[in-house]
Structure formats: structure tokens, C-alpha cells
Nucleic acid binder design. Sequence first.
RNA 1: GGCGACAUAGCCAAGUGGUAAGGCAAGGGUCUGCAAAAUCCUCAUGCGUCGGUUCGAAUCCGACUGUCGCCUCCA
Length: 494
Amino acid sequence: MEISFYDTLSAQKIEFKPREPGKVYMYVCGLTPSNYPHVGHARTAVIFDLIRRIFEKNGYRVFYYSNFTDIDDKIIQRSLDENITTVEVVKKYSEAYLEAMDQLHIKPLEKWARVTENIPEIIEMVSKLIENGYAYESEGDVYYRVKKFSTYGKLSKRSIKEMLIGARIAPGEKKEDQLDFALWKAAKPNEPSWDSPWGKGRPGWHIECSAMSLKFLGNHFDIHGGAQDLIFPHHENEIAQAEAYTGISPFSKYWIHTGWVTLNREKMSKSIGNVFLISEALKVVSPNVLRFFFIETLYSSPLEYNLDQLHQASRAFERIVISIQRLEEAIAKAESGQKNEKMLNGFKKLHDSFHQALAQNFNTPQGIAVLMNAIRELNKLLDTGNQSLEDLQSIKAYFSDWFDTLGLVNVAETELSKEEWDLSSEMKVIASKHQIELSENQSVADMIQAFIQKRDEYRQNKQYFESDEIRNDLYALKIQLEDKKDGTEYRIIP
RNA sequence: GGCGACAUAGCCAAGUGGUAAGGCAAGGGUCUGCAAAAUCCUCAUGCGUCGGUUCGAAUCCGACUGUCGCCUCCA
């Protein structure tokens, strides 16, 4: 299937053409691990994971690289604040980030490139830029000569002239020009540093991504990504560095930028301080729901984060979960039989629409609309009953494929985790209230069955006050009883 | 000050020239002892405002209003 998306560099929707057939080389800017990751980081990570999955579903092998900028002013500042080494700062926060990636079902990357492991490549690049006149040394610092790079501004759509007019940048004493930016910074006392032709120092921001993406992906790779706030100056500078270094344009063929997460309509940002951590969000909703919340909106639009929106996503996702649970139950009971070609054909069409939607600028909202329509069809089908095992399994395969594409895992999981099952003590309290005998080593599932049995007795005797009381008590423990034709079932409220 | 993005129902949100997807919330019917779930029905002659182009515009053009962002660190 042809995949197209909005490319920041050409400022239009383009059809993706890989550098090598069947392969996608993608570099997405990671972060500077100087703090715990917030919901904005999660969104960007989920979106690029999704993009990767979409390419994979379309038969591409994706080489996905990202980075930790593990030496930088902020890391140094943090190490002073916390009175630990810069290495410890990086370890602490990069591990927290990687753990969050794992929780959010981000598929493993090809590599997390680190600045401190690629210093020789960076020095080589800076040296070459000085040689060919794109950079100059000044008192131990090295700066990029922006005016020398004639196409500077092509990504962010601004001109050098405009920037000089609107600039608020104070001219640095060591710079030739106020637009120039640092490639190498001379070390101050007690700062981590590396030897270089310009004395002890460390790389500036920007240079590491040019050096590492060229090193690991080669020149003219397919996709360079990141959030919108990286367009300028970070990505603009990366282009200037890389293209001046290689002499070949474009450095990356396509550029994809994600919208940011807002809080009260303002950008969630460390500097403003209006930040919700991923860990905080995951206390409120499951990773599946958080992912679902992100992909309900197109990746490039701003996304307002609040509990009400999270709740809406949660409700919608719950509908999906319930239907898939019903499907699993139906499969368990179904018998082999005739194929309903017409019905399966309907699902095949939904399948095509789903992938078509995602291939069009990764349009997940439209994909979810298709998914919801499929859920409605599934519910109707399950209401009529007696579907053959083969049919139900075919339908399940479609849903599994869609969930896999969206990175939603174990959607039909009904078993409670160990922590959630730590309900037995509370359940015993309710049990004694209703004169139900529970034994010590009974599973919670068995306990619930005991409640259901007792409630059935009440209902038989039309003691509805008592039966409703049991239902309400269990509901308070997030166990919801549902009376169906062939008996009472329960489900756990997510 | 310079540049840019966005504005779709009570809320969220797709839709870039052919007559408004989907979700949440709400109301009604079926089912149920009652619920819940499910299902069916209802819910924008309308897409910030005013003009223009067109046989036809939420979609293109212009002006205006509003919100946000970038120009300094940011996912």
C-alpha cells in the first residue's frame, strides 16, 4: 500500500519512496535525560512507534534509531542540583524513560545512540566544518558560520534576513555573527570534558544528532523526526551541519514533526513547569488507554491533556474491550461449521479501510472510526449467536491485526493482576455481611462465583433488596455483575 | 516587532472542491425483577465572521476576529 504523509521540508503531503526498496531508515530525536519523562515525551514516542508499526504492516523493515543527549548544560546543572555525577544523572533519568517506553508498548529500537560514545565522530565532523569554512574556532569554542550556509532556514521556512530583523539574540562576544551557534564548547572548571584540537571541551547541542544519524543511518536517509519544537533551531542546525559536512543535500529525505501536548491550552513544557509525568498518567489509566488517548487525535495536532479527556478515551476503549471479551467467550463455546462468506467479506472491507486510513498521513482517528464500526458489526453478530468457530476466529484475526498495528496489547485480558486481585480481604468483609462462607485459599474468581450463587438464591426468592446489595458491594470493588440469558457473568471495570 | 499554525455539535475529533466519519455526554425503544452491557432510533441545512472564485466550498482566495506557537532551553 502506498504510504503518504506531510513532510515538513517540502511543506506538502508526499508519497513515501524509500532510499532502499523495502527499508525505512528513521532517526527520531530523543531527549536530554535530565528529568522524569512527561506526557509530551510519551506522545512523541507513541506516535513514532505507531509510524514504525504502520510501515512494518506494509512490509517494510524499519531501522529506527534515537538518541540520548547525555552531556549538555542541563545535565551538568542537574548534577549540581542533585549533587550527583553527570553519569548518575543520565543513568537515573534515561532508565526512567526506557521504563516508560516499555510500559507504553514501544517496540525496541535499533539503537539508543549516546553522545559520549560518539565523541570521535563529532570531533571529526567539527574539524571538517572548520576546514571547509563553515565553522571557526574562537577561544576554545567552535561556532557554525550560519550565513555561509545559503539554504539556512529551509526547514523552518524563515530567511536569514528575517531572523536578523526579528532576532532577540544578543550577540555573543566570541561569535562572528549573532546567528552563529556552538558546535563545540570549551570546558569550564570541573565540567566533564574531552580532548579536542581546540582544547578540552564538549559538543554543543545539535551536532550530536547530525554526527550520529550520519554514522548509523548513512547520508540521505529516509525519515528524520521529532516534535514540532525541534524544527527550529535544532533540526535546522542539523541540516546546516550535515549538509555542509557531506556536501550533499538532502541530509534526510523526509521530516515528520509531531504536535505537542497542552495543559489548559498551553504547551506542556519543563520551562513553564506545567508538566504531567508519564508515571502520574499511568496511575489514572492503563497504558492501552493512554495510547488510545494519543491516537484519537491526528499526530500533528495539539492535544489537550486533562482527566476528562482521559476519561472519554477510557470509556471508548472499554467498549472495545467488552466486545473483544464477548468474542473470546463466543470462540470458547463455538463449534466448527460453515463459513459465512458475505459476513467475512464485510470485515475484509473494514480491514482494507483501516489500513488505507493509516497509510494516509497516519490518520489514526479515521482508523479508529473504522475500528468502532467493526465493533458495532461484531456486537450485532454476537447478538444473533451461532457463528461458526472458523468465522469467529477469522474475525478475531482481523481485530488482532488492528490492535497490533495500534500497539494495543492484550485487549481482551480479563485476568486481574496480582495487585488488583489483592481484594480478598475486602471481599471477606462483604461475604460475612451476606453470610457467605469463603475458604482461605479460594481464588478471587471462585469467591465471585460464591457471591453470584448467593445472589441467585436471593433472586429466586425475589429478595431483590439483598441481591442488589451484593451487586452494589461488588461494584464498589470494580467487579460488575451482568445478568445474561444463560446466567450471571462478571467483568472487571478497567 | 518578525514569522507561522489553528478555529467543525454540550465536549473531543476526522474530513483539502461534490454535499458533514468516529467517540464521550444526552433523550427515547427493545432486553432485565430492577440495573448494567448490548442493540435500534434521535442528536451540526451546518463547519469563527464578512466578502469573493466556482455549476458546486468546511475544503480555494481576501479581509476581519479569536486562540496558540516559534523567533532563547524544550518531545
